[in-house]
Design a binder for these strands. Structure first.
Lengths: 124, 124
DNA sequence: TCTATATTTAGTTAAATAACTAAATAGCTA
DNA sequence: TAGCTATTTAGTTATTTAACTAAATATAGA
């Protein structure tokens, strides 16, 4: 379960256009980075990519993208794993699943409370 | 359906501790503000509250809270309706429902893509 | 109309954010 | 080892954010 600090960190991370676009593309596989040619057994997901590949899609410098990725990693939205001299970035679906569940619970509780208070009357 | 700009605005709004706490309490009914005594027919939800009531729960000045509320309203996370000389604040559940649905779709698509790629093999 | 209440606007300031370039680190490959 | 690739760290700067106080606006009620 995500605690409040963690949720705020996630929202802050996604509340920036560049980071949001990185997030979007890492999760939907918009970027692809060739995996290690020497070792095809490397077990990265099809979504995996690396820092420089992502940076190619933006007009910002590599250090700027690197810093954005760090923030996404600290919010546990992505994972970054070093393999050789590259860092493979993958979506952290558990965090997104957790966030989705939080919103689901919030909506559900809200509906239940409303029903308790208003009975079966629909408020427009 | 929420567009990208709107989503980013929502995340930015919730990525601040004070605004997150306001959001939390407005949605869960943590604050309650007495409704208009003269006119009990006023149709505000049990979650309704007003700016000064919210401000009482924080060590920040009223203008600071007012500005935070404005940002939450612009992100369509809450609604603010003036009735007399008070402004009643209510949660905008549709926005939260929409956001929850987005995360749901993202997770679902992710699972489907993974299944398409990996078959029924479970990746640990 | 006068006064009190509720809220926002304006203007200021300190801190945080997001960008840059240059330099450092780390791991391949020749 | 030397050079190349991938990435981060350090240091700087401009912009944005979040806070404040004081003043303005709007409504309610005496």
């Amino acid at each position: 379960m995500l605690d409040m600090k963690q949720k705020i960190k996630i929202f802050k991370a996604l509340g920036n256009e560049t980071r949001f676009l990185i997030f979007k593309n890492v999760f939907t596989g918009g970027y692809t980075c060739s995996l290690d040619k020497k070792d095809p057994s490397v077990t990265v997901s099809p979504h995996a990519t690396c820092v420089s590949t992502i940076a190619e899609h933006f007009d910002f410098s590599l250090p700027t993208i690197s810093k954005h990725l760090k923030e996404l990693r600290e919010a546990e939205i992505i994972t970054m794993e070093k393999k050789g001299n590259k860092i493979y970035i993958e979506p952290n679906i558990e965090t997104i699943r957790g966030l989705g569940a939080c919103f689901g619970t919030l909506v559900e509780n809200f509906e239940n409370n409303r029903e308790l208070f208003f009975g079966d009357i629909t408020i427009s």
